[in-house]
Write a protein that binds this DNA or RNA. Sequence first.
DNA 1: CTATCTGTTCTGAC
DNA 2: TGTCAGAACAGATA
Length: 326
Amino acid sequence: MPELPEVETIRKGLNSVIAGKTITGFESRDSKVVRFDPKEIIGMKIESIDRRAKILIIKLTKPNNRRPFGSTQGIGDRAMLCHLKMTGQLIWEAKGEKKKHVLRRKRVAGGHPSESWGEILPCKHTRAIFKFDDGSELFFNDLRRFGYLKLIQNSKHIIENNGDHFVVGLFDDKSIGEIPELAKLGPEIDSSDFNMDYLKSKSKRMPKKKIKTFLMDQEIISGVGNIYSDEALFYAGILPTRLASTLSDLEWEKLIKSTKKAIDLGIQYGGSSEETYVDAFGKQGTMSEYSMVYRKSDQSCKLCGSIIRRAKIGGRSAHFCNNCQK
DNA sequence: CTATCTGTTCTGAC
DNA sequence: TGTCAGAACAGATA
């Protein structure tokens, strides 16, 4: 379920198991999904895994690479961008785990819930396989093939100053902002730029945009997807059909708080799916226990008892309570 | 069989 | 320029 909280959960889990490992092999099984030459990353070391919006940024360095004094990176270092889109999964498996019974395997997994959690990997939907120096493997599965893996080169970011070289590299926030995929994205939910003045001024320039669509627009705010926009609007008591430009100051304040609350709850929930494939068996879809309106159409509102409605807004289904939300 | 649903984002038409 | 429908793809479900 790769919305922001899920992607963040995957990031943490993966970072804890693959940071520091060296890539000894890479197999592409789908050239649409894998958008680089596998040769480019063999022998590179995983520095860390970061995230911007729902995009994972896997930082890679070349061992023994020459780096300018005082820099953590040099020419030839790279960053891999990974987007799971609708149905992507990343599953890491320790060496030799295939032979074990499914419930005893050591795995860190996350993404779209499906049978692949427990299957022998690679499976039908495996689009890429990373092999590491300790014999462990990372599988990128994607049923619908919307997701991607692509590589960003560091070489363009060398800057010369007074005859000295210093580096503005991919690993600096500044140059991450220059990567086309990342440059257009709006502020993260936990950034101070996600505030009322910013949202009000944006909404004035988009007078006909509905608040749900506004919230989900990644160029306005990074990381709010369908589930959390429904939940945030419910907490804030605002109907998804309202025009963003008509919100009062009080409503903006409530919506900012509610969005943070919805995402935080999601991250707490996501924590439960981080480590285990077990959740994907018996406890699939526990998000519905936490949700107030998402996928609750025709059920009673948990607050007031009236029937939760559903409508299409901007091509997505919106869930809301006509009584609690105005 | 048909019709409709699904976590995201991009493109092209108006 | 902003806004929206439809596309990209592969299912599951009724």
